[in-house]
């Protein structure tokens, strides 16, 4: 559980964190009805950062990253993504969504479209990319996630791991500057987890800004430059992975780590 079985060295040459701010969250609060799900979140993400968000279930990690592309609405505070403030203005929301890629736990591929159509749909309709160019780019990213031969199949014909890699390729086809991963490996068999993590590591090696909600602590240790621990809707602790795992400060973090790393 603790170590990521990776059969090669991670290439860190391009994993550079720049000074440019990609996401800025300040004093953000969110309620579901009267339930206070996110409490006073402050977080700045620089371009090139690879952040893993961990925490027990119900701690608000998924809700936090879903707020970043307005799949969930926040009720107080500010979120600035890529220089655009998230408000109720639909134009801003659509702009941010087209710059921010998202990968879901249950893949959410479009079952009535082929793999290639899944990947070309948004570039053609949102970016107005010519069809031929969109298809070339889709094939490029499908090769990158190592399933170009499945391009003409439908999602229902692919394994879970393949579907998740298609989902990653589909997001990449929009050329996003930030990628959000919402428990991308939680619905997968152990074998398939590895193929999806490999894809995510390659993405990190190319310098993509990534926010990743995951329980894969091996990935957090080796790829992330920062680990954020959330509990009960607030950020309890954040640190570099080495410090976070070897020397957690808060009692809550220690308990969590002992539970998930203990067996």
């Amino acid at each position: 559980m603790s170590e990521l079985a990776l059969d090669r060295e991670i290439d860190r040459t391009k994993m550079q964190v720049s000074d440019e701010v990609a996401i800025q969250i300040s004093n953000m609060n969110k309620w579901y009805g009267t339930f206070h799900v996110l409490r006073d979140i402050n977080l700045t993400v620089n371009r090139g950062e690879r952040i893993v968000i961990a925490g027990p279930s119900g701690s608000g990690k998924s809700t936090l990253i879903r707020c970043l592309n307005a799949l969930e609405e926040h009720q107080a505070g500010n979120i600035i993504v890529d220089g655009t403030e998230l408000s109720n203005d639909l134009k801003n929301i659509d702009k941010i969504r087209s710059e921010v890629g998202m990968v879901f736990q249950h893949f959410n591929l479009f079952p009535h479209l082929t793999i290639l159509e899944n990947c070309t749909l948004a570039p053609i309709w949102v970016r107005k990319t010519p069809k031929k160019e969109a298809e070339e780019r889709a094939m490029h990213f499908l090769e990158k996630v190592k399933i170009p031969e499945q391009a003409d199949k439908y999602p229902g014909q692919l394994s879970g791991g393949q579907q998740q890699r298609v989902a990653i390729a589909r997001s990449l086809c929009m050329m996003p500057r930030i990628m959000l991963f919402d428990e991308p490996t939680s619905a997968l068999d152990p074998e398939m987890i590895k193929e999806v993590l490999d894809t995510m590591i390659e993405l990190a090696e190319e310098g993509m800004t990534m926010l990743c909600v995951t329980h894969e602590m091996g990935f957090a240790r080796q790829v992330a430059n920062r680990v954020i621990f959330m509990d009960a809707g607030q950020i309890v602790e954040q640190n570099e992975p080495e410090e976070f795992f070897n020397n957690p400060k808060s009692e809550r973090t220690k308990l969590f780590l002992s539970q998930i790393l203990g067996h």
Partner: peptide, 17 residues
Amino acid sequence: PKGQYEAADSLGLDYPQ
């Protein structure tokens, strides 16, 4: 599934699309 709406939204498709 709700995920289909979310996937469409997260790709930046507007409501009619």
